[in-house]
């Protein structure tokens, strides 16, 4: 028996190393299944919690068109959450259990959503930077070894680029406006820049899950590589519309062909993960309230279906 497991394990490793895809019913090591369930469900939770900071601005959007766009964007996030829960369920877990773990605080979601969205410019910064960082993380996942996750990510990535552009377009518009509007845009960049860089996770030397996930083709690039790309992509975009990057140490390094940038405040990063961010409590309360308030709807739908089935 142990020998068979060993054999299956070797076959699996060779198969994945050859860049082939694993599908739901294929044999896979328990640790691979567990790590995927953890990552995909955290990812799904992030999409769902990510609706909250932006959802707050739907009723306060400055024009009907911006309101319709933001509504569509937030609806996409709900869709992304559902694609991902659907991918997670192919691994033999139940969505209701995953949701319970989110609501009880047992499961994590991306820490970025524990920061508040204070002004309309924050909606610009979130789309531009937070969705921008998310795309940077997600594009390589379209080639991840687990088929259902890769397919879900392909759908998500197609939709995310609208999100990033609508954010940048909000910033662009503000930067063409009054001094107060420009200040508002700059203030949003100042507050969202560092948390956005933290989205790539701890530095490579500190990252817990990296090396095994690289071997399994769940992860393709290291946290620091992706973070570097994010910096190099964003700097000219900010410059183009007259925003100043909030990093005094930022400068072009000809030799490495990229920017050098300042040290990230990792104390803040771990503090927010530990639950001490500005909005951790509020986000969980909001999710729990939405879930509880929706319970009668879920129950009524089941009662209605049962009644109809009984009548036919």
């Amino acid at each position: 028996m142990i020998e068979t497991q060993q054999h299956l394990r070797e076959e699996f490793d060779a198969y994945v190393a050859a860049d082939k895809k694993i599908e739901p019913k294929d044999w896979m090591p328990d640790a691979y299944r567990k790590t995927l369930i953890r990552q995909i469900s955290q990812h799904a939770h992030s999409e769902i919690v990510g609706m909250l900071p932006e959802g707050k601005w739907i009723t306060r959007a400055p024009s009907l068109q911006r309101k319709a766009i933001l509504l569509a964007k937030v609806q996409d996030e709900a869709g992304h959450g559902l694609y991902l829960y659907s991918a997670a369920e192919t691994l033999g877990v139940d969505r209701a259990d995953l949701v319970d773990d989110l609501l009880s605080g047992k499961a994590k979601y991306s820490s970025i959503f524990n920061y508040p969205s204070l002004t309309w410019a924050d909606i610009g910064a979130i789309g531009w930077l937070v969705d921008g960082a998310a795309i940077m993380n997600q594009v390589p996942l379209c080639r991840c070894s687990y088929g259902p996750y890769a397919r879900a990510m392909t759908r998500v990535c197609k939709e995310e680029s609208f999100h990033q552009r609508q954010g940048y377009s909000i910033m662009m518009q503000l930067m063409k406006g009054t001094d107060a509007q420009k200040e508002m845009a700059q203030d949003a960049l100042n507050r969202w820049w560092w948390p956005s860089l933290m989205m790539f996770g701890p530095s490579d030397s500190e990252s817990m899950h990296s090396s095994q996930n690289m071997k399994w083709n769940i992860k393709r690039f290291s946290n620091d590589e992706l973070r570097q790309r994010m910096v190099d992509m964003t700097v000219p975009q900010a410059e183009c519309i007259g925003l100043k990057m909030p990093d005094p140490d930022l400068k072009w390094n000809e030799e490495k062909g990229g920017h050098d940038f300042g040290e990230i405040d990792w104390t803040e990063f771990y503090d927010v993960i530990a639950g001490n961010g500005i909005c951790n409590k509020e986000r969980l309360e909001d999710r729990n309230k939405a879930h509880d308030d929706g319970e009668w709807v879920r129950d009524a739908a089941v009662a209605y279906s049962e009644k109809r089935n009984a009548n036919t």
Partner: peptide
């Protein structure tokens, strides 16, 4: 294309 949860076929 994927899966989803619903109480009946119409939903």
């Amino acid at each position: 294309v994927g899966s989803l949860h619903a109480s009946d076929a119409e939903m």
